[in-house]
Amino acid sequence: AQVLELVFRSAASSTIPTLLLESFMMGVLLAFIPIGSYLLYVKSRSYMPFVSILWMVLVTMLTHWALSLRDLESTLAGRSMGFSTSLIDLAHAANASKAAAHGEHRAHHAHLGDGAVFGSVFVFGQAWRHLLPLVTETVLFGFASSLFAIAAYIVVRRSCSHWRSRFDLIIPAMVSLMYTLSLIHWAIALRCFTVLPKYAMSGAPLSFQTHIKGLDISLLIVFSLNAVMSDSIVLWRMCVVWERTSSVRMIGAVLLIATLGLNIANIVVLHRIMVYTRWFPRNSRDSEIITTYGLTPVGLAAAFLSLATNLFATVLVGTKAWIHRRQVSHQFGPKTRRTLAGRVMELLVESGVVYTAIWLLYCISFFRQITT
């Protein structure tokens, strides 16, 4: 157990920070290399050898990162040391060695023992549960940071040449706010992860639960704000595409108010459950590690309403794109090239379909694990 504690300490202080940095860089490369390759390809075909080198670098880095992650997982699960680090298996092993030392046969009575080492292994275990969501989030945060840098460059370049009005800056401003919120979310998730190994190493009493609950609520508030803003952008785009038709605007407003209300209600309910330990009906099949929408009926309603909002907006934009294409081919003949408005609408539909599919997967994950 003491060796295990040392291995965990070393993982927390050196291996995991390196892996997180590598994960962030993976996200950055996953954004810059495809966009850079596209720009070089459009500029001149003579850049193709350079582009293929970039992709080879990306594949090598991805392989290295995936192997590092697998190696870390195998260390934390104890496979590289030849035993299981699950608390029950450790208790069995400890009891078996005690029984052997005293010449008794008590190995089948597993209990956690009284040593501080078991407490420390338990808290480390809590930290490792937060690790994989954090690694995923760090890769995506690196990806979002690169996209934000590229978007900021586009906005600055355009503001020097042509912005028609201040209204054009609303979307860049909202996107900046959303990026800031996702930065805060990542910072809190990182804090959640770093607090636990510190408690484990200090050997302090298990008072970390209150601390972690506060951080979990903060994560939920930031995420809910981002989800509501993302839905509002989707609905706003739908209204613009439908040239602000009053019925579409009204449905959009109702959906937005309902999403906002359910998100606030979900935060209130989860705060009562976590902080005041009040009883509420709960979804026992929820597989989330960071509790968001999956635990209570109110949260599930908020998540499914967001899914419905995205689906509804995508279908309406798709319908408008189809009507637009029919009108263009009717007026200028079937072989007319796609117009700018048509291309933008197609892009909105395609991205809407991808985002809706991700929300659908997310909603399924509240009831069963997606992979085995």
Binding site: L134, A151, I358, Y362
Partner: peptide
Amino acid sequence: LVTAVDHLDGAMAQLTSIYPLAVFILIALD
């Protein structure tokens, strides 16, 4: 990918901000 799909609770906060950013850049590139 398996890690990402199994841990959408960590990923969704980032994906909500990636979505509008990606659409903005794709329209600008187009």
